[in-house]
């Protein structure tokens, strides 16, 4: 019967603890605990770019409606320039989730879309909501891969285009 060397066992345990310590910050960032991109709020029609990384797999932006009407969020993903062969060179499929900030009219609403790949270079997800001026929503921009794995698992750049229209 094979007996494990206590020294090796302690070393393995130490290694596990070290790995856990290393991954904890990333794992604290989940679909249910996304990370606010505070310097890029979405005020009405606008456009921002950002990155999904292994350290920040679930970034979110706070959107504030500037009109009564509808808003469209389009998220487009592309591979990192220095990692063009990720996912066999095919853009990651985006995953867009939007959660309403409660107000007197709405509470606990949420939407999501897994999007699709337009072509090998881009993936796109789109959600459209009915909004009132001043209402706020949290817009999570991640990847379908991350959502399925329930942790940051892939890297990509994203572009988020916000367009409002009044009826």
């Amino acid at each position: 019967m094979h007996r494990t060397n206590p020294l090796r066992r302690r070393a393995a345990l130490g290694c596990l603890i070290a790995m856990a310590s290393f991954t904890l910050p990333a794992w604290a960032d989940t679909i249910d605990r996304p990370t606010l991109v505070a310097d890029k709020p979405l005020d009405g029609s606008t456009e921002v770019t950002g990155s999904v990384t292994l350290e920040r797999g679930f970034p979110y932006h706070r959107y504030t409606a500037q009109t009564d009407g509808f808003v469209r969020f389009q998220m487009e993903t592309s591979n990192l320039e220095n990692r063009p062969n990720d996912n066999e060179g095919v853009a990651w499929r985006p995953y867009l989730r939007i959660i309403s900030v409660s107000n007197e009219h709405r509470h606990a609403e949420a939407w999501s879309s897994n999007g699709h790949q337009l072509d090998t270079s881009t993936g796109k997800a789109e959600l459209v909501l009915r909004v009132r001026k001043g209402e706020q929503f949290d817009v999570i921009t991640t990847l379908a891969q991350n959502f399925v794995r329930k942790r940051p698992d892939a890297r990509a750049n994203y572009r988020l285009v916000v367009q409002e229209v009044s009826p």
Partner: peptide, 17 residues
């Protein structure tokens, strides 16, 4: 491709556009 929505708890109306 999937779009999903959870309704407004105040009205229980769910809308997916």
């Amino acid at each position: 491709e999937v779009w999903a929505g959870v309704g407004n708890k105040r009205t229980n109306l769910c809308e997916v556009i």
